[in-house]
């Protein structure tokens, strides 16, 4: 097993460290710059793109529950409960 400075040189340790850090910094710097520009882009395209957020969130109101559906659910639960009791 080689060790010491020569192993660092043979393994190109310094080159990998410098280029690796540069690439990580470049990737995150571009990401950072993109995040910085994103609100400006969104404002620029606001007239073209549909209005935001409301369409993606939960509906602003919920429809009143249908009485027929409620009755059906109630009947199903009642039947299930009865059949379970009979089984035991």
């Amino acid at each position: 097993m080689n060790s010491g400075i020569q192993n660092i040189v043979n393994g190109q340790g310094i080159t990998i460290t410098i280029s690796g850090m540069l690439i990580v910094f470049a990737a995150l710097a571009i990401t950072s710059f993109f995040i910085y520009l994103l609100p400006f882009f969104l404002r620029m395209f606001a007239p073209i793109l549909p209005a935001e957020e409301a369409s993606h969130h939960m509906p602003a109101f919920s429809a009143p529950p249908d009485e027929e559906v409620l009755a059906a659910i109630g009947f199903a639960l009642h039947s299930e409960a009865n059949s379970g009791a009979a089984g035991k």
Binding site: N2, G4, N7, I8, G11, I16, G20, M21
Partner: peptide, 15 residues
């Protein structure tokens, strides 16, 4: 990450 890589190389680990 990268400085430890150098340290590991120094101690004789493979790249």
């Amino acid at each position: 990450i990268f400085l430890t890589l150098i340290g590991a190389l120094y101690l004789g680990f493979t790249p």
